[in-house]
């Protein structure tokens, strides 16, 4: 082993700097390694085993086959959950984004009281999902709920909300004498109810991000446009939207991934019911792990989560490919 004195001063300093830097990152590396990276690898290995209440054996790709075999029961469950996931994204993301954008633009223009509004709109985002869900459950109550009372005021009959497995399109259709069948009946009212909660919970988050995006838009551009005689609508369409498009795109990607991975609100509000109409993929994975299939729950659930991850990643890449190009990076 060479003695320290044989290293020249520069190399010694570099070595010391490296040791110091490694010491700085070490705690984070260990923690992230053990609780994020390692479980990621482990999840993949687990998906290759038959492992339920106990570990049984290595199972190769059996679990993937079980989930992806169109004749199997697991496939049906998985596809149903995928359908729920898609509906849930469609029910939440566009509405959230539209409302948040409107609020943000209006807030940005009218300055008086902006801070106060911002505080109120952001409030739901910081509240606990479990506690807030209790409040919504109460408002959705079929017998004494506030919502049934409110829709009763405009002559709509009382609904079961979180317990209603019927599709909303089907319900609306039959109110006008149109009988829809199968998938055309749409997402269940229960899923719509969960979506209402979700929109409420996340709208402030998106508003704040949009507001930040708007603040970044150069005010001089507006001034110039006004001097050129552009109307408010033109300014919005020609300047605000294009300049905000990176933010909109970012929110879209974030909200889509977030909605696909939603769990807590569904777990608390419906636990996947009624008739599995709110059982999205994360809920199915959870149930497979923890409530059912003691025989192979861990193996199957891990396989499902990997397939799901691939789907989420594919959708994100798709968004980047198709929409990302249209984003205007001024």
């Amino acid at each position: 082993m060479p003695a320290p004195s044989r290293l020249d001063a520069r190399r010694r300093r570099i070595l010391f700097e490296h040791i110091e830097a490694y010491l700085f990152v070490l705690p984070a590396v260990i923690l992230v390694g053990v609780f994020d990276v390692l479980p990621g690898f482990a999840a993949f290995l687990m998906s290759l085993t038959r492992w339920g209440i106990i570990y049984e054996r290595f199972a190769g790709l059996d679990n993937y086959r079980a989930v992806l075999d169109p004749a199997g029961a697991r496939f049906e469950q998985f596809m149903n959950s995928l359908g729920v996931t898609v509906w849930y994204v469609l029910l939440t993301v566009p509405i959230e984004m539209f409302l948040a954008l409107v609020i943000a633009v209006v807030l940005y223009q009218g300055t008086s009281g902006r801070g106060a509004y911002r505080v109120v709109y952001f409030m739901p985002y910081i509240t606990s999902v479990v506690a807030a869900a209790l409040v919504f459950e109460w408002m959705f109550d079929a017998n004494f709920g506030l919502l049934n009372w409110a829709i009763g005021l405009v002559g709509i009959p009382a609904q079961e909300w979180l317990r209603e497995p019927d599709g909303v399109f089907g319900m609306i259709g039959s109110a006008f004498g149109l009988e829809l069948q199968g998938w055309m009946t749409g997402p269940s009212l229960a899923l719509v109810a969960v979506s209402i909660f979700t929109v409420w919970h996340f709208i402030g988050f998106q508003t704040v991000i949009f507001l930040a995006g708007l603040t970044n838009v150069d005010r001089e551009l507006y001034e110039a446009a006004r001097i050129d005689g552009a109307g408010e609508r033109q300014i919005f369409l020609r300047i605000t939207l294009p300049l905000l498009s990176p933010t909109i795109f970012f929110v879209l990607v974030l909200a889509t991934v977030g909605a696909m991975r939603s769990f807590s609100q569904i777990f608390v509000l419906t636990n996947g019911g009624p008739l599995d109409t709110t059982r999205n993929v994360p809920m199915l994975i959870f149930q497979t792990f923890f409530e059912r299939t003691a025989v192979n729950g861990i193996g199957l659930g891990a396989a499902m989560s990997f397939i799901f991850v691939l789907i989420v990643v594919a959708i994100t890449i798709f968004q980047f490919r198709v929409l990302g190009r249209r984003v205007f990076y001024g």
């Binding site: 482990a42 990997f306 991850v309």
Partner: peptide, 14 residues
């Protein structure tokens, strides 16, 4: 990007 659903069980077992 590793979703928490995927790491929940390994973390739990760990």
């Amino acid at each position: 990007f590793i979703p928490s659903e995927a790491t929940l069980i390994p973390n739990f077992v760990l």
